[in-house]
Amino acid sequence: MKDFAASDPTDLLDDLIVCPQCDAAFRMKKPENGERAVCQRCHKVLIAPRRNAGLHIIAVAFAVLFLIVGAAVFPFLTIDAAGNKNAVSILDAALAFSGGPMIVLSLATAALIVFVPLARVLLTLYVLIPVVLDRPAARHAIRAFRVSEALRPWSMAEIFAIGCAVALVKVADLATVGFGPAFWMFGILVVLVIAQDNFMCKWSVWYRLEHPKNS
């Protein structure tokens, strides 16, 4: 990483930033907290640092971690029709496709709803805690952050939440549906996951991983 820091052309390269979306190259001027650097050609936000973003993300990540575990374990929805009762947890819902090739779908659903969001939170904590504490980056932190970013589109908690609403309306005339504790946990979880994605400035994280001691 820092091997070529002394040579001249890379000094120049350090001032350059390339838009990942349209490949335009710009001379970089680091924005202040709350400001944003935007690609002039395609208007993608390149850098958007915030004050204490790292701390906020870590706090939210811990909340998300507890909520995921809670939401996965506690009953999620209960149904009651003419004396027949049934309570399901989120894992039950994810594993509803059983038998034959459907098991693949079960595993995929469980991954999309529970395990991918969980993995992203753990990776985020692993990468950011040393950075925020001004320690040297954790081992393999760079690879961990790359994996976490690659998983981003596959984390579908918020979609599952809307799916719940649709399912509830479908069942409502068939039976009485009650909410378990996990339902409310999951509702908060969705808001937090979205907030966390908005706090995160990728460029700042990469920068801090490369320059752990500065600022």
Partner: peptide
């Protein structure tokens, strides 16, 4: 994916013998 999730929730929830 919403439709898949709806199916998953419904089939887990509505199992009333």
């Amino acid at each position: 994916m919403i439709d898949i999730f709806v199916v998953a929730i419904l089939s887990a929830l509505v199992q009333l013998k």
